[in-house]
């Protein structure tokens, strides 16, 4: 049951990425280009996502005993702001701005069977494993 639900959630997530325009790097760059020909579309994606997650995460995490099919909610337990968080986020931002792909769309876009996207995915995976050793 857990596995089926993970597949369903992944599919809905991947469909949402494609419907929203997040899988189109040109649109992403257009959103980030605030001083140029700014395309606000992806602001609506973030807004639509938070419209759901902000109220419902509080509701689910505070008003329910736990998930339907698991022992408990697995949540990050850290609250400190450290240099790794800032450095990592800054690096991610630079890479995102360079190519227009963040990890979700990079993976889901493998469905487009485009070699450039595959190369990006392989490099991204390599980057993760290198960082894992630090």
């Amino acid at each position: 049951m857990n596995l089926l639900l993970a597949l369903i959630c992944g599919t809905l997530f991947g469909a949402g990425l494609a419907v929203s325009g997040m899988t189109d790097p040109a649109k992403v760059i257009g959103f980030l280009d605030v001083t140029g020909a700014w395309d606000p579309t992806l602001g609506f994606v973030m807004g639509g996502g938070l419209l759901i997650t902000v109220p419902f995460f509080q509701l689910v995490l505070q008003r329910t005993q736990g998930p339907w099919f698991a022992e408990g909610f697995r949540l990050p337990d850290r609250h400190d702001i450290d240099a790794r968080l800032i450095t990592g986020a800054a690096m991610f931002g630079i890479g995102w701005g360079l190519v227009g792909l963040c990890p979700g769309p990079a993976i889901s876009s493998l469905a487009y069977l485009n070699l450039d996207i595959l190369y990006f995915g392989i490099a991204m995976t390599a980057g993760m494993f290198i960082a894992d050793r630090f």
Binding site: R84, L85, I86, T87, G88, A89, A90, M91, F92, G93, I94, G95, W96, L98, V99, L101, C102, P103, A106, Y119, F120, G121, I122, A123, M124, T125, A126, G127, M128, F129, I130, A131, D132, F134
Partner: peptide, 12 residues
């Protein structure tokens, strides 16, 4: 870009 994104998200 891929390397930097992968490294950054893991670190962050």
């Amino acid at each position: 870009g891929g390397l930097v994104v992968g490294f950054g998200v893991k670190l962050g």
